[in-house]
Measured scan of single mutants.
Amino acid sequence: AVCQVIGMYDYTAQNDDELAFNKGQIINVLNKEDPDWWKGEVNGQVGLFPSNYVKLTT
C-alpha cells in the first residue's frame, strides 16, 4: 500500500469498479495516479474511490 487514509464520509459505490466504505473506516491506498480517484482496498475489496472523501492518517 502507498499509504492509509480514513473515510471522512460514507461512500456508496456507483459502479462495479468503485470501492464502498464507511466514515471512520481505514482504507489502504494502492494507487494515486489519478488525483481525484484513488485505488484502494478495504476488507479484501479493491476499487476506486474519490480522494476528497478521505483524509490521511497521521
Results as ranks from 00 to 15, higher is better:
I27G: 03
I6P: 00
F21E: 03
L48D: 03
P50E: 02
D17E: 13
C3A: 07
P50Y: 00
Q14F: 01
N31G: 13
T12I: 05
G40F: 00
Y11T: 06
N28P: 00
L48Y: 13
Q45Y: 08
A20Q: 14
V5G: 09
S51P: 10
P35D: 11
D16H: 05
G24C: 00
E18K: 08
Y9S: 15
D16S: 09
Y11V: 03
T58V: 12
V2N: 11
N22V: 13
W37Q: 11
D17R: 14
D34H: 11
I6R: 08
V54M: 03
P50G: 03
V54T: 13
Q14S: 10
A1S: 15
V5F: 03
D10C: 07
K55T: 11
D34F: 06
E18T: 01
T58H: 09
Y9D: 15
N43L: 08
I27W: 01
N15H: 08
G47F: 00
G44K: 00
Y53H: 10
E33S: 12
T57Q: 14
P35T: 15
G44W: 02
W37Y: 13
T12G: 08
D34G: 08
L48M: 12
V5W: 06
Q4N: 10
V46M: 08
I6M: 12
V29D: 04
L30H: 04
D17M: 13
D16R: 10
G44N: 11
N15G: 14
N22T: 14
V5M: 04
F21P: 00
N22R: 14
D17P: 06
F21R: 04
Y9K: 15
G47C: 00
V2R: 14
C3F: 11
Q45H: 08
Q14A: 10
L19N: 04
N52S: 13
L48C: 11
Y53S: 08
G40P: 06
I27L: 08
N28Q: 08
N28T: 15
D34N: 09
L19I: 09
Y53A: 14
I27E: 02
K55W: 04
Y9L: 15
N28K: 13
K55S: 14
A13M: 02
T12K: 11
D16V: 12
G7D: 04
W37S: 03
I26K: 13
G47A: 03
D16Y: 06
